[in-house]
Design a protein around this nucleic acid. Structure first.
Lengths: 216, 216
DNA sequence: TTTATATGACTGAGCGCTCGTTCAAGCATG
DNA sequence: CATGCTTGAACGAGCGCTCAGTCATATAAA
C-alpha cells in the first residue's frame, strides 16, 4: 500500500499560534470560531466577511478572536483544513464498508458523490478561497486535497488486474483518480446548471457509467 | 441544430457605459485596459490589483480609466467576456476544421485541451474571479461558459447514432459535454499536480481514452 | 491667415470609508 | 495579589472613486 499518511490531529495543532494557555479551551473556542466562519465564508466569501462579523457570530469580541487565532489568513487555513478532514473522513468511511471488488468501485464513487452533494457549499467555497492563502498554507491545503484523491488512486490500483478489471498502468490510474475527484466536485461548482437538469441520482448514474466506460 | 446564438459583438457594446464620445477610441483604449488588466489579475488576483495599478499599466491616469469604464466590477466583466470570446473562438476554429466523423471527436477534444493548456492562466483566473461579479454580470458570464460547453454538446449530438456511435439520450450527451469541458479546465486548475506527472500530450492521450471509454 | 471659442480627453490630489490588527484597561478565579 | 482570559476603542494603511481643473485640437469668426 502506498497510502500516504495523513495527520489528522483534529485542530489542536501548534501549527497556528494562540495567546491562550489552556489547550482544551483553545480547541473548544476554535471549533466555535471555525463553525461560524465556515457559514460566513459560504454566505459572503472571504473578503466580504470581516473579522468583526466573525467575532460577533462566534460570540466573542474581536480582541478575543485574536487571542485564539493570529490572523484572518490563519483562520482561513483552519477552515480549509477542517473541511478537508470532513470530506476525507466521509470518503474513508465509505471505502471501509466495501472490500474493493468489481462493482464496489461504483459504490465508492456513488458514496463520494453524495458527499460532494451534501458538502457542495463547502467545496465551492474552497475553490474560491484557496487563492488567498499564504504560500505556506496553500501547499498544505493542496496536499490535503491530494490525500483525498489518493484514496481513489489507491482503490483503483488495488483493483487493477483483478476481477475482470484490466491491468492499468500507473499513470492511467493516477489520472482516473483525479477525474473521479474532479467530477464529484463538478457537481458543486457547476450546480448553477446541473441542478436544473439532473438530480444527484441521475448524475451519479450517468457519471458512473461514464467513468466505467459504459457509454461509448 | 439547437446551436444557441452567441452575441460576439467584440467589445464595443453599450453594455458597459463610458463617458467618452468617440466609439473607436473607446474600443482601442478598452483593448489596452483589458490587456493589462488580464495580466495583473493573473499575477495578483482581483483584490490585490488596485485600480491605480491598472491605470498605470495601461498608461493612463486613474481619472482617465474611469472615463472608459464605470467601475472595477464592470472592468472585471469585460475581462471575463474577452477571455470567453477567445476560448470560444479557438474551440470553434478547431471544430470547423473537421466534419464530425468517427475519430474527429478525439480531434476536437485534443484541440480543446491544447487551448486549455495555452490559456491555463486565464482559465484559472476565471475560476477565482467570477465570484466577485455582481449578479447581473455573473449570469452573463455563466451563459458564456455554457455556450462553450454547448459546442461540445452539439458536436456529440450530431454524432449520436451515426458512424458506429451509439444513439445517446439527451441527458447523457449533455453531461458528457460538461465532462469534456471540465476535464479540459482541470488541466489548468490542477496543474500544481498534473504538470509534475504528465505532459499535455500524455494528458490528452489518456483523457481521450478515458472519455471514449477505452480504459475499462 | 490669424484669433477666439468650444469641445472633450486627460490629470491626480484628495475624500470618505472599511478593514485587519493592537493594546491598555477590566474582570474573574484561585 | 497573581494569573489568565476578555473587552472594545483606537489606529492607520489602503481602497475605489470623484471632480475641479488643464491642455491639445477642432471649429468659427474676423
Amino acid at each position: 500500500m502506498e497510502q500516504p499518511k495523513t495527520d489528522t490531529t483534529p485542530t489542536a495543532d501548534t501549527e497556528v499560534p494562540t495567546q491562550i494557555k489552556n489547550p482544551d479551551l483553545v480547541m473548544e473556542r476554535r471549533r466555535q470560531i471555525i463553525d461560524s466562519t465556515v457559514k460566513l465564508f459560504i454566505q459572503h466569501g472571504y473578503h466580504k466577511t470581516t473579522t468583526r462579523m466573525i467575532a460577533k457570530a462566534s460570540n466573542f469580541s474581536i480582541g478575543s478572536l485574536y487571542e485564539y487565532v493570529s490572523s484572518k489568513e490563519d483562520l482561513l487555513y483552519l477552515v480549509c483544513k477542517t473541511i478537508h478532514e470532513e470530506v476525507q473522513e466521509a470518503v474513508e468511511n465509505a471505502l471501509s464498508k466495501t472490500d474493493m471488488g468489481k462493482k464496489q468501485l461504483a459504490q465508492v464513487i456513488s458514496q463520494y458523490f453524495y458527499v460532494c452533494d451534501r458538502m457542495g457549499d463547502h467545496i465551492l467555497m474552497m475553490y474560491q478561497v484557496t487563492q488567498f492563502l499564504p504560500e505556506k498554507w496553500k501547499t498544505k491545503v493542496l496536499t490535503n486535497e491530494l490525500n483525498i484523491t489518493n484514496i481513489f488512486i489507491n482503490a483503483l490500483s488495488s483493483l487493477s488486474g483483478k476481477n475482470s478489471f484490466p491491468k492499468l498502468d500507473n499513470q492511467i490510474v493516477n489520472l482516473v483518480g483525479h477525474n473521479i475527484s474532479v467530477l464529484g466536485q463538478m457537481w458543486a461548482f457547476r450546480r448553477w446548471h446541473l441542478k436544473n437538469n439532473f438530480t444527484i441520482d441521475d448524475y451519479i448514474k450517468i457519471q458512473t457509467d461514464f467513468i466505467l466506460g459504459h457509454i461509448f
